[in-house]
Amino acid sequence: MFATEFEYKKASSISEAIQLLSSNEGAKILAGGHSLLPMMKLRLARPTMVIDIGGIEEMRGISVENGTLRIGALTTHAQIADSHVVQEAAGILWETAYGIGDPQVRNRGTIGGNVSHADPASDLPTVLTVVDAKFTIQGQGGITRRGSRTVSAGDFFVGPFTTVLAENEVLTAIEIPVLAENQKAEYAKMAHPATSFAVVGAGVVLTVDNNNVCTAARVAVGGLTPTPTRGPSVEAALVGKELTDENIAAATALIDGDLGSDILGDIFASAEYRRAMAAIELKHAIFHATGLAHH
């Protein structure tokens, strides 16, 4: 309820934010505040300096260019959920944004803040992984230090609440390939009743031909693993198959083998249960994606 004391700085540019971050140990970036402030109020985070990047216009905005959807890191979930550009370019992201938290969380929470926080229960890491998003990261320039770099979503998340971001780096934008007409993408989750966070979330991007045969597949699950987990066995089993109930059920069941042994569990849902639910949520996602949502 009551944060510890800190110094507050408002950065007016990305470089100023990085400068401040580099020169102040214990400094934290504040975007929408919906990841950092709750931690600070419970005194689980005690930054000595808070660098407010909320006013940096160059980090906002949604655009499509050359088949790539570009979203500034400071774009709020609500702006994504209200954007027809996102709806057309990447409907899966548009719908996922609408399912995050609640209206007020969406109004303040930002896509960049969300993924930088890397909460395993968050929806966006899974969705951005499955759509193969690229994260633009800005660091300090010069020979010995990192300048700008791009990291794919699959490489960005390192562990729970841990990313590849160095102490003095800021995520500035996210790029997503615009989905083709024959690509069907969907995200399904079992939401925690208290927070709407994903107990288990599953994202799919399927390329489907005119005979309802899957020609390419990307699937990922989250919520139950420290970072989003791709399902190569599921993908392999889907490709070349007609998307029937039976084939989908058989393929999604293979996610179990892709999950590894590090499964999260808590008092609401054990690791055993979450593991079993991965296939169920994947199945739901594929059913929704392919219009088989009669289950």
Binding site: Y8, L37, D52, G54, P103, Q104, V105, R108
Partner: peptide, 12 residues
């Protein structure tokens, strides 16, 4: 837009 004013600093 609506915000939860408990999750926003006055300085913001």
């Amino acid at each position: 837009v609506t915000v939860k004013s408990c999750t926003c600093l006055a300085v913001q």
